[in-house]
Structures are given as structure tokens and as C-alpha cells.
Design a protein around this nucleic acid. Structure first.
Length: 824
DNA sequence: AGCACGCCGACT
DNA sequence: GTCGGCGTGCTC
């Protein structure tokens, strides 16, 4: 049997059910250049449509009839290294996504190709022949009309647009088959490499100066340019013009004279990070020093390790991180720091740039495509060895990874809600294990899973128990809102909180009030009939956005003008403000003339204004700041001595096993905002359930007790870390069909679970139940939940189930996917 | 998912 | 006859 060289390719067009490495013949002209990690254009399917893929491996295999050949390479260099390819394969097995989905998550959007299909007339002159070939087909004639009117070629998108809902595919195919049209596929990159001209001397400086010196008087600029280049050797053309006053014409004339050469060099677009003064050496206190030593011993221990750094708010975890990174860089390694949300951690970013300057690369989703792409390239080129970023930065192309820090590891933003539905903590573990790096999970309120693993010895545990500078913890008081109601106080400000606010106003100290609501956007309701406008496509209420004066849906993006009156009864509409605005109004009534600053999704649109608001709050000592979760994180203001939590239990009664953990963490963070300076801080927690354990433990800042109670509950209920929840979601336009698919899935599953080897897995099955938001974008969603140990065997079962569901003809119109420990 | 193939009704 | 609608099966 003849052996040929094959490329094993992961395809962008493959669905989960048919995803696997596909074998393609490598044509002779690509044999030398093709390497694993490069993207390729390949023919796929019966129609041989051109699609994008990525080479996973190159191997020899037997020649076969079935084999098709790679069309072309899309990259000159691999965009994924061997470890990343391994990671992509691992993610498919773990998160039930395609290999390409995983690869896509690893690459910056700027590297991403958009494929354009163009249909061109083979022989434009032969118009008659073309229409003859079209025959009686109305569609084919319309396509020809369009192509001719466009000058002989048209984009597929254009044709689709002209056809509306009708699919032009068959008619196009017939025209291509008859040789009238030809399909051209071009790949274009969204963001190009940015280059700049760099000039340098073609000869030794003395020689060059001697050449231009005689004409120094008549051509001073030429002389100045050569003088500058003699001094610095090489400079960008822009800079040369800037410093000497020369024009590009001067430079060109020097190039023509053979004195100077200009070449293109890639430049890296950088995010405007203020370049602070270089920071001095980090001084650690005894506790921090001990943690640093222990962690660094693990880092240099020669094999991969994971550690939990459990340090109370204000204990100075960042200092420890910095020392660890310094040590890692000194050993020639690179370090990564993941944070839950970059916009909320400007202070952290500032500290890191002050220590590591140009070595820092920032990667997060609100960067512009070009910026993100360039930061990615700086990392890949090894020019930035300290990567700071959000969830997706865990895929940064860092070589020689020595240290990976996941700050605030309990945050749920580390879990992706979109394909691929990965958890950055898991991916971080994988990467650290592969490269022998140290994984540090940092938190003031570790997730129950992580603490469990630390207590059972899987993670090394390090604790920072004291606040930096020996600051005392704020005094925490609980206000029982039921009593307030009984006393006739229907507002959201309790007597106690009011009293404390008054005290702060009298002393000129600042207060932060926190509303425990996610999103916290405003809704609209009719005062007459109680109607609340809902999204026509989703089962959620619409929220009001003051920026554009429209009602919007957070799920599908639907937006409509705010109606003047209730569409049902014509009554007057009013805003529902359990949120920040209502509290703001109540406070303004309570304290006339006192400025109350509001910070929520409504007042904050861009990162800019978020920071602007905060800096004004600090600078002008605005007495009261009120906001949603945004105010809970990472804010350190010396003059803030009082923190109030408006509705502490609001996040507690959610149908989610993490509700307690989330509430505890949130309350602890908020309370920690008080008294960061010299003065003693206070916190008031308002709740309708003052006896609730989570609330009392948070008030007492007693993590250990919270953990003990929570872990017992998790064990009892079969939640992580004891079991994982696998959620299968079916969605489709017809509710009855979706439900039927779900029931069938359950029956299939029950059948499988009754037999070996699955009967031994001890799996519990729940559902079908409607998803928490039952309809999104006119698609109904029902879910089936399995709980069990996250083993290879169980994952294989889920994979088989999803594949079977996707292949089942009866399930047409309904899509099925799986997610592990989803957010809701 | 998308595309071809194949079978069937409608219009020419 | 042949165009186009729709159900079925496969994708290196």
C-alpha cells in the first residue's frame, strides 16, 4: 500500500457530532511548509465547499479514494503550538465542544479569517450563452441579472440578500456546474499587521557623515538625519521626521543616494497604559514572607503544583504575587495573572505596570481587535512575559510558563457561558501541569471546591490572616428589615443605617452603599394595570436604558422605543426602581442637599466613565456613593468609613447551589471596603433574614464556619466538590418538540444508566425542567441535569448522548448541548 | 450544519 | 418533461 503524507485537520464547519480529525492529502507544494498549528483552507462535504481548518498533526498514511487535498495554507507560521493543540483536544473531551471551537477561543479575533465567497462569470462576453444555460430557472436568471449588474462578479452575501428568505444555493450550484459561474473563495483577515518604516545607515557613520557634510549648508536636513542615525543606529522614519524636521522626501532622497535604507518593521499597538514611576522593592511582612517562601519553593520544586493563597481582604496578596512573579522572571520564566474583570481592577493594573513596565501585556475582551491582536503577538514573541487578563487570557501564547495566578478564584466570571463552555481554573490547571508551572489560586473567600481540595491536601494551603498595617476589621451590624417594616419604615434605608450615615456626614467621612443586585437595570411598569413590557422573543422583562431612551432585552438584544403609555390599557408607565435609582431618591429625600453619586450599568457606559466616576468620588469627597456589584470590588478609599448593604439576602434565594457562596463572598468584599485608611470602619448589613447562617457568618467575617456549614450542605445535596452537575439543554422554536426531545433524552439515559458500566456511576437524574429563562430569541429551552463524579466514563456517556441526540432525525429543529456546572 | 441525491407533485 | 419541494444520509 502506497504511503502518502497526510494532514490531520480539525474543521470549523464540523458540528460536535461529526467532529474528529479529518485526513487531507498534503499536495507536493505544501509538503515543506505545512506544519501542525497552521490553519488551512480545505474542501469539505459533497459540495466541496471551502472551509477553514487547523492542522493538528502531520502523519503518513495509506492512499485512499476518499482523500481530498488541502487547498492552501492560511498561515505562514503556526498559530498554535503543540501544547495548545493538546489543550484543544482536552477541551473537546471536557467541555463537549469541537476542537475548532476550542482553538478559536485561543486565538485573538484579529488573527481570524473571514472567508468570502464570490461568484464570477466565466465568460462575461457571452451573455446569451449564460442566460441560455440558466434555462427556465427563474432563480438562475435572477442571479445572472444581479451578477451582470455588479460588473461580472457578486458576493454570496449580496446574492443571499437579494433572495431574502429563499435559498439561492441550488440555482448557484447549477450555474457553476454548467460552467457559467465560478466560485472564488478569498480569506481576509479582519485586522492586519501594523508596520512602520524603520531607517538605518547602509554604511559606517563616519563614511555617511563624510558624504553629506559637504552639502551641510544647502541640505541641512539630510545632514541632520544622518547625524541622528549615526548616534542612534536605527530609528523609525516617523521619529526621525519628528526629531529632525525632515520630510519623508528627505529620507527617500537619502535612500536613493544609497546612504540610508528603509524597511518595514512590525509595530505593536499598545493599550494606553499610564506608565507609572517604577516601583521600589516590595517589602513583605512576616506572614507574607512565609507565604512567599513556601510558594516559591513549590515553584522551583521541579514539578507542577497548585496552591491556594487564602488571605483576608487587605492582607496584601498582591505583594506576594509580585514577589513570586519577580522570582519567576529572574529564573527566565513567564507569568500569568488572571483577574475576574479588568475594568474593576485599574489599581491592580497600575501596580503591575509600575513593577514590570513593558514586560506587562494586558489581554481582555474590551480591547479593540487590533490592540488585542498586538498584545497577543507581543506575548508570543516573548516580549511581554507578564500577562494580565481576564478569563480568555488563560490561553495566552506564553512560553516557558512558570507561574499562573488566578486572583479572586471564586469568581464566576471564570466560567464561560458560551462555546467553549470552559472554566479558566481547569484550563489553568491543565496548562500548569503541562509546563510544570505553579498554579496559585488567590482569594479572601475561596470557593468551597478549592478550599475542599486544599484541606484534603490536593492544593497546598497558605494563609494570610492579618490585614496589612494591622488595620482592624470593620465593626459589622445587622439591620433587621422585618422590624423596620413593622415600625412603619417602608424605605430601603433602615434606622441604623440612617443613623450611621448621619454620623459620617457630620464627620465629613464618605459612605458606600451597595445594592445586592446583578445587572441592576431599570424596568418599566404600568401604574394602572401592572403590565410590565416583556421581550417579544424571550421570557424576560425589558429593561430601560437611559443612554438611548429605549427598552432593551439583555438576552437577544431586542430594543424598542419606550412607549408613551401602557400598550395594554393606556395607563401611565413608571420606572420600577428597587435598584440604585430608587435608593438614590430616598437618600436625597432623607438628606436634602447632600450629593448622592450613583454607579450602575445606567450611569456607567464605558470603562472610562467608570474610572472617572470613581476618581471624582475620591477627589471631591462625594459623601455617598451608591451602586451595584461594581462598588464591591477592589476599591480602596481612605476616607470611606461606612459601608451599607441594602438587600443582603437578595442573592441568597436563587435556584443555584452557589447562592450561599456567592452571597458570603460578596458581603465579605463589601464589608472589607470600609476603613481602609487610618480610621476604624463600620458596615451595616440590611436583611429580611437576620438569622440566616450565611448572613451571620459574613457579618462575623467567619469564613471557616461558613465553609464548614456549606461543605456539609454540598455533601448532603450532591453538589461540587463531591459531584459535578452536567446540564443537557435542548432548545428549539416549538416548545412541545423541545420537551419531547428532552423526555426522550431522559428515557435513553435511564436505559443506559441501568446497564454496566454506567450503573456503577451512581448518577442522579433530574428534569426535564424549563431553563431559568425559558425562552430566548424565540427558542424554548428545557434542561436535564445529571449529577455524578466528573470522570472520563461519565463524560463519555454525555458525549455519546449529545451525539445521539444530534444525529436523531426525530430531533430536527431542536439542538442539544451539554455544560458542566453552568452558572444558572 | 450544509449539501447532494432521490422521490414526488405542479406547471408547461 | 423538468423545476423545485422536501426527506434522508454523509461529511477525510
Amino acid at each position: 500500500m502506497d504511503q502518502v503524507r497526510l494532514a490531520k485537520v480539525a474543521l470549523s464547519a464540523a458540528t460536535f457530532a461529526i467532529d474528529k480529525p479529518y485526513d487531507y492529502l498534503l499536495p507536493a507544494e505544501l509538503l515543506e511548509t505545512a506544519r501542525p498549528g497552521m490553519r488551512v483552507l480545505v474542501p469539505f462535504g459533497a459540495g466541496n465547499r471551502r472551509i477553514e481548518g487547523i492542522i493538528l498533526a502531520i502523519a503518513d498514511g495509506p492512499q485512499s479514494e476518499k482523500l481530498k487535498a488541502v487547498f492552501s495554507l492560511l498561515d505562514e507560521e503556526p498559530v498554535l503550538d503543540g501544547e495548545s493543540i493538546q489543550l484543544a483536544l482536552w477541551m473537546r473531551e471536557r467541555y463537549f465542544c469541537t476542537v475548532y471551537d476550542a482553538a478559536r477561543a485561543m486565538l485573538p479575533a484579529g488573527l481570524y479569517f473571514s472567508l468570502q465567497d464570490r461568484y464570477r462569470l466565466v465568460n462575461q462576453a457571452d451573455k446569451e450563452g449564460a442566460y441560455e444555460a440558466a434555462g427556465r430557472s427563474d432563480y438562475a436568471r435572477r442571479i445572472l441579472d444581479l451578477v451582470y449588474s455588479c460588473g461580472g462578479a457578486a458576493e454570496l452575501g449580496q446574492i443571499r440578500g437579494a433572495f431574502g428568505a429563499k435559498d439561492p444555493g441550488p440555482a448557484l450550484k447549477s450555474l457553476v456546474d454548467k460552467g457559467v459561474l465560478i466560485l472564488e473563495t478569498s480569506a481576509s483577515r479582519g485586522v492586519g499587521d501594523k508596520t512602520e518604516q524603520v531607517a538605518s545607515l547602509l554604511m559606517p557613520p563616519e563614511e555617511a557623515l563624510a558624504l553629506v557634510a559637504p552639502k551641510r549648508k544647502s541640505a541641512p536636513l539630510r545632514y541632520a538625519v544622518v547625524e541622528l542615525l549615526s548616534a542612534v543606529g536605527q530609528a523609525s522614519s516617523k521619529e526621525i521626521c519628528y526629531f529632525t524636521g525632515a520630510s519623508t522626501a528627505t529620507l527617500r532622497s537619502l535612500v536613493r543616494s544609497g546612504i540610508v535604507t528603509q524597511e518595514k518593521r512590525e509595530v505593536f499597538r499598545r493599550v494606553a497604559v499610564d506608565s507609572p514611576e517604577p516601583a521600589g522593592p516590595v517589602v513583605l511582612n512576616g506572614e507574607q514572607e512565609a507565604a512567599f517562601r513556601g510558594l516559591d519553593a513549590l515553584r522551583t520544586g521541579g514539578k507542577s503544583a497548585a496552591a491556594l493563597l487564602y488571605g483576608v481582604t487587605g492582607s496584601g496578596k498582591t505583594q506576594v504575587y509580585i514577589r513570586l512573579i519577580q522570582a519567576c522572571l529572574a529564573d527566565g520564566g513567564a507569568a500569568m495573572v488572571l483577574v475576574p474583570e479588568i475594568a474593576l481592577t485599574p489599581q491592580l493594573l497600575h501596580i503591575f505596570t509600575s513593577h514590570f513596565g513593558e514586560e506587562v501585556a494586558v489581554l481582555h475582551s474590551s480591547l479593540r481587535a487590533g490592540e488585542r491582536y498586538d498584545e497577543w503577538k507581543r506575548v508570543r514573541a516573548g516580549r511581554a512575559r507578564v500577562v494580565i487578563g481576564t478569563r480568555s487570557a488563560v490561553f495566552a501564547p506564553v512560553e516557558r510558563l512558570g507561574l499562573l495566578i488566578l486572583d479572586e478564584e471564586q469568581e464566576y466570571t471564570y466560567k464561560s457561558e458560551n462555546v467553549p463552555r470552559y472554566h479558566a481554573r481547569d484550563v489553568a490547571k491543565f496548562r500548569c501541569a503541562r509546563s510544570g508551572a505553579l498554579l496559585v489560586l488567590g482569594s479572601a473567600t475561596p470557593s468551597v471546591e478549592s478550599m475542599y481540595l486544599a484541606k484534603s491536601g490536593v492544593y497546598h494551603l497558605f494563609e494570610l490572616k492579618n490585614r496589612y498595617n494591622e488595620q482592624a476589621l470593620p465593626g459589622v451590624y445587622i439591620a433587621d428589615m422585618r422590624q423596620e417594616l413593622r415600625r412603619g419604615n417602608g424605605t430601603s434605608v433602615s434606622g441604623l443605617l440612617r443613623q450611621e450615615l448621619e454620623a459620617n456626614l457630620a464627620h465629613g467621612e464618605q459612605s458606600i452603599l451597595f445594592i445586592n443586585r446583578r445587572g441592576a437595570s431599570r424596568m418599566v411598569t404600568c401604574g394602572e394595570c401592572g403590565e410590565v413590557p416583556t421581550c417579544p422573543r424571550c421570557s424576560v422583562y425589558l429593561t430601560y436604558h437611559s443612554a438611548n431612551g429605549r427598552l432593551m432585552c439583555h438576552y437577544c438584544g431586542h430594543s424598542e422605543k419606550l412607549p408613551a403609555a401602557c400598550p395594554q390599557c393606556g395607563g401611565a408607565l413608571s420606572f420600577v426602581g428597587t435598584g440604585t435609582q430608587k435608593v438614590q431618591e430616598e437618600l436625597e429625600e432623607l438628606f436634602p442637599g447632600v450629593e448622592v453619586m450613583r454607579m450602575d450599568t445606567d450611569t456607567v457606559s464605558a470603562t472610562q466613565s467608570h474610572e472617572k466616576l470613581l476618581s471624582r468620588f475620591e477627589r471631591e469627597r462625594v459623601p455617598i456613593l451608591i451602586g451595584t456589584q461594581m462598588v464591591a470590588k477592589g476599591l480602596d478609599f481612605e476616607n470611606v468609613t461606612l459601608v451599607g448593604v441594602i438587600a443582603a439576602d437578595l442573592s441568597l434565594y436563587v435556584d443555584d447551589y452557589r447562592a450561599g457562596e456567592r452571597t458570603f463572598s460578596l458581603l465579605t468584599q463589601v464589608v472589607g471596603r470600609a476603613g481602609r485608611g487610618e480610621k476604624q470602619g463600620r458596615a451595616v448589613i440590611q436583611t429580611y433574614t437576620p438569622e440566616n447562617d450565611v448572613i451571620t457568618n459574613a457579618a462575623a467575617q467567619d469564613y471557616d464556619r461558613f465553609y464548614d456549614e456549606e461543605i456539609g450542605m454540598r455533601s448532603l445535596r450532591g453538589c461540587p466538590p463531591f459531584r459535578d452537575l452536567f446540564v443537557l439543554t435542548a432548545s428549539g422554536a416549538e416548545e412541545s418538540r423541545v420537551l419531547r426531545v428532552c423526555m426522550k433524552l431522559r428515557r435513553t439515559l435511564e436505559g443506559w444508566l441501568a446497564q454496566p458500566p454506567y450503573d456503577a456511576l451512581g448518577i442522579q437524574l433530574l428534569g426535564p425542567a424549563p431553563a431559568s429563562v425559558a425562552k430566548v430569541n424565540n427558542r424554548y429551552r428545557y434542561r436535564l441535569t445529571l449529577s455524578g463524579k466528573n470522570t472520563k466514563s461519565l463524560r463519555a456517556l454525555i458525549t455519546a448522548l449529545v451525539v445521539a441526540a444530534q444525529n436523531d432525525k426525530e430531533n430536527r429543529g431542536v439542538s442539544v448541548f451539554a455544560d458542566v456546572n453552568p452558572l444558572d
